[in-house]
Write a protein that binds this DNA or RNA. Structure first.
Length: 890
RNA sequence: GGGCGGCUAGCUCAGCUGGUUAGAGCACUUGCAUGACAUGCAAGGGGUCAGAGGUUCAAAUCCUCUGCCGCCCACCA
């Protein structure tokens, strides 16, 4: 074997690209080349607004760990890669860049076609970068099924979905108050509003001297469009005015006709108990307007703010002013007229801002496309809201197979609460990048469907669809829907989805909505919600890349495996975690440890056992020593634990379990013991076989988390196969409790002797002389481990085993429960110090024994605690007592 | 105004369907260039589990309250 060529340290750069290329070429990323039960994961498509950051590294690590684990367990795994065109956000981003480059108004200057072309160029370049990054992260996705939310197949799915929802009467065109971004010149949905706290001024005033009711507002300029004052129906103060109309002149185009109306929603105890109603510029007021209309007691609607953020001609003397200027002017007028009832009051207020354009959202009345979430779907007898709730509670139609489980569970409550309060979804955007609304108009005719209708004179709606409309269909549009493809049948519902909690409402909910509506299926069975990755100081990695870290830089420096381990360790469901230099180094070191363990094994087994290329390490192993039994038992325990942990989505603990096993058990103990066993002719072959066996299994166990290094080592075996498509270890019944106990005892003994050396500053090179005091039970145990003890504790191997021993003044004692060791010093041991050391131990033991005795003598404990607990406590008591007795004797 | 999460070793975090003398990584102390690895080895030090009550034979773990820190939601004019 040529394994001596393995370099001392694992250099990730030498392997990763080559290995990824080999995996790709092997075809095993494509489930068509695998057998077994289908298992599918859809990659949350990164937005082409930018390139990938560390958060995406976490997502890729999560998805790929799961995909690889499932593949090793014989599943036919599909992991679909893709990107999201991110309609409005991408346009916002490109416009911002163009404006930074000197353009004043990109839409005006370039026009629709040219601007869309610019955005497409940007998107394509981001897309290419992103896909390259995904490969660098080692993600085992099927590139033959690569999808993009804006490609032709996805466009068909979007149009078809729209058509069906329209035909079901769920999608409608309606005039109502929308969220309007003046800067973005577009609507946005309720979910795209970010509320920020800011200082504001509350003005309390009357419309005119003889108006009987005082009202308050932080937006005086909108009052130019007031058409009513609402009071609580039971409010005695205002009872007599209800139904009356007052005409006031506040300087708008026409004098305002203010009707006093009653509405249950008004809180009579708050403020003046009266509310100025501005139907055109407040969603709540608009509802009152509709309610009044429905009750046959209509009030007016006057739009005083335009789409450009300036006052309209309805605002009369205020027309053309910005809202800020209009506000100042109106407040000035109120003050002059003596209409302000109180000094203006400074308050803190939440205002909605556009999450993309960052400006304050105006409420304006407009005709837009909406998705009705309340309406009963004819074929289903339920509303979209009902479907969305069912999917998380009882399962669709009570079918528990069609139920989404969210980890951690607490997000389920959030989701359901949100669903309950869901309002109709505004689908149309006035930006240009994205799926065009699939609706055509000709005079009074409307056509909804896929592609331009036949005949002359049709014009397509100029608006585009909310980007989440296409991402909502991701789990099935990627599988060929609306065609009833084989993929769709095999892989939907998908098995697992992971995402950050920040898109729970935006995305998870919409996937459930779309999938339950279109397919009558949940989009995925399990949703794993991860937290955000923060920097060392606990700050968010901002999207503007100011303190962002490029995952490629990390990969370049530390390797992909280290990055993956790093982002997964310490990351628990739903909780944020931090990324730091120290953490990545620690992960890199573990990768290197794996490498060196393998390096040692491949170098030392020589020709004694069959080389791996001829099946070495595959067959039956023959444990000969306690250590052999122990390590095989540990491997089995760890195999069980790791599998269970991954299936519970507890990736961090799985990694910790593996690290502990490989580093502490396998490398620090078994390898050291194996070096001794290798020198023994009768043990050499079996030891080497076990080394190779445990190594191979460990590589498989670690592969989901560190795919590259495990594959690189596997390659050294020269089998020509991939660890990626090997088999997750099976439980073989090699666990042996007594070996486990014995080895732990051996470890404790060796550590104790090493401790004597350290405490007494005896140089490591010197072999110490010791005497073992044993009883019948422990004699055999020590004798059979003579060589191991000698080598690992560094004592002369010809030590005596006696039953009684009179300690000399040059001896230091080590006491275990049924073995004592006397270590011979060259000089007289300081009797005071030695006594103190023993005293300390005696005190610790005594204290412990007292507490145990207290518990055990407690009647209630004895009668109520389970048998198992009592027995284990009694066992511990015996052990501690034995040790204490031995200590006292010495 | 509602709701949620966090508070465990110097730092970052596990553990929390109650039951070993509370763990890991990093940092720290003391030794080691021990033929796999100094990206390492060995031996250590370090915590009244935010505080106060309660339930229980038993609480970091369950309940109540309080205090900080963070997040989400909400039409209080």
């Amino acid at each position: 074997m040529s394994n001596t060529e393995m370099p001392k340290a694992y250099e990730s750069k030498l392997y990763e690209d080559e290995i990824y290329a080999a995996w790709e070429k092997s075809g095993f990323f494509n489930p068509d080349n695998l057998v077994g039960e289908p298992y599918s994961i859809m990659m949350p498509p990164p937005n082409v607004t930018g390139v990938l950051h560390l958060g995406h590294a976490l997502e890729n690590a999560l998805m790929d760990a799961m995909a690889r684990y499932q593949r090793l367990n014989g599943k036919k795994v599909l992991l679909v890669p893709g990107t999201d065109h991110a309609a409005l956000p991408t346009q916002a981003k490109v416009e911002k860049m163009l404006m930074e480059g000197g353009m004043k108004n990109p839409r005006q200057e370039l026009g629709r076609e040219k601007l869309v072309e610019k955005i497409r160029e940007f998107a394509e370049s981001s897309r290419a970068t992103i896909l390259g990054q995904v490969k660098k992260m080692g993600t085992s996705c099927d590139w033959s099924r690569l999808a993009y939310t804006f490609d032709a197949p996805r466009n068909i799915a979007v149009n078809e979905l729209f058509r069906q929802m329209y035909n079901d009467g769920l999608i409608y065109r309606g005039y109502r108050v929308v969220n309007w971004s003046t800067k973005g010149q577009s609507t946005c949905s309720d979910d795209e509003i970010e509320y920020i706290e800011r200082a504001s001024v509350l003005y309390t005033f009357k419309y005119s001297k003889d108006f009987p009711i005082t009202i308050a507002t932080t937006r005086p300029e909108t009052k130019l469009g007031d058409t009513a004052v609402a009071v609580h129906p039971g409010d005695e103060r205002y009872q007599k005015y209800i139904g009356q109309i007052f005409t006031v002149d506040v300087g708008a185009e026409k004098p305002l006709e203010i009707k006093v109306i009653a509405d249950e929603g008004v809180d009579p105890t708050f403020g003046t108990g009266a509310l100025g109603v501005t139907p055109a510029h407040s969603p709540v007021d608009f509802l009152m307007y509709e309610k009044q209309k429905a009750s046959g007691n209509p009030i007016g609607l006057i739009q005083v703010i335009g789409v450009d953020g300036h006052m309209t001609k309805e605002a009369g003397s205020y027309a053309g002013l910005t809202v800020e200027d209009a506000r100042a002017k109106f407040v000035g007028w109120l003050s002059e007229q003596g209409l302000l009832e109180k000094e203006p009051e400074e308050i803190v207020q939440n205002v909605g801002t556009s999450d993309r354009f960052k400006d304050v959202i105006e409420s304006l009345p407009m005709t837009q496309w909406w998705l009705d979430v309340q309406k009963i779907i004819p074929s289903k007898g339920k509303s979209l809201k009902d479907l969305m709730a069912e999917a998380l509670t009882t399962g669709l139609n009570g079918n528990t197979e069609q139920k989404v489980t969210i980890t951690p569970e607490r997000f389920t409550k959030l989701y359901l609460h949100r669903v309950e309060n869901l309002r109709d979804w505004c689908l149309s955007r006035q930006t240009w990048w994205g799926h065009r609304i699939p609706v055509w108009y000709r005079g009074k005719e409307t056509f909804v469907g896929n592609g331009t209708p036949e005949g002359e004179g049709w014009e397509q709606d100029p608006d585009t669809l909310d980007t989440w409309f296409s991402s909502g269909s991701w789990t099935f549009s990627t599988l060929g829907w609306p065609e009833q493809t084989v993929d769709l049948k095999s892989f939907h519902p998908t098995n697992w989805m992971q995402m950050g909690y920040e898109i729970l409402y935006l995305w998870l909910m919409r996937m459930v909505l779309m999938s339950t509506y279109a397919l009558g299926e949940i989009p995925f069975k399990d949703a794993y919600i991860h937290g955000m990755l923060r920097n060392e100081a606990g700050k968010k990695f901002s999207k503007s890349d100011a303190n962002g870290i490029d995952p490629l830089d990390i990969i370049e420096k530390y390797g992909c495996d280290a990055l993956r381990l790093c982002v997964l360790s310490g990351n628990t469901p739903g909780n944020d975690s931090r990324f730091s230099a120290e953490k990545i180094e620690s992960s890199r070191n573990f990768v290197n440890k794996m490498w060196n363990v393998s390096r040692f094994i491949l170098m030392s087994i020589g020709s004694d056992v069959l080389p791996p290329s001829q099946g070495g390490g595959e067959g039956v192993v023959a444990p000969a020593t306690v250590a052999d039994h122990w390590i095989l038992g540990r491997l089995e325990t760890v195999t069980n634990q790791t599998g269970k942990l991954i299936e519970q989505f507890d990736f961090s603990l799985a990694i910790e379990t593996l690290r502990e096993f490989i580093w502490n058990d396998f490398a620090d103990w078994y390898l050291e013991i194996a070096k001794i066993q290798q020198k023994d002719e009768t043990l050499r072959t079996s030891t080497n076989e076990i080394l190779l066996y445990v190594l191979k299994q460990s590589l498989v166990l670690c592969h989901p988390f560190m795919p590259f290094v495990t594959e690189a080592i596997w390659k050294e075996f020269g089998t020509g196969s991939f660890v990626m498509v090997s088999t997750w270890p099976k439980v073989t019944g090699l666990f042996d409790e007594s070996s486990e106990k014995q080895l732990v005892a051996l470890q404790e003994l060796i550590i104790a002797i090493r401790n004597v050396r350290s405490q007494n500053k005896i140089e490591p090179k010197k072999l110490m002389d010791v005497v073992f005091v044993v009883n019948n039970a422990s004699r055999e145990f020590i004798e059979s481990n003579r060589e191991v003890i000698s080598a690992l504790a560094r004592v002369n191997s010809d030590f005596a085993l006696v039953e009684k021993y009179e300690a000399a003044t040059t001896d230091v004692s080590v006491v275990r429960k049924d073995v004592s060791v006397f270590v011979k010093m060259e000089t007289v041991v300081d009797p005071v110090k030695e006594k103190a050391r023993i005293e300390k131990e005696v005190i610790e033991l005594t204290t412990y024994l007292v507490s145990v005795a207290q518990k055990l003598s407690n009647e209630e404990f004895r009668s109520k605690a389970p048998e198992k607990i009592i027995m284990s406590m009694e066992e511990k008591q015996r052990e501690a007592q034995a040790k204490l007795d031995a200590l006292r004797k010495s």
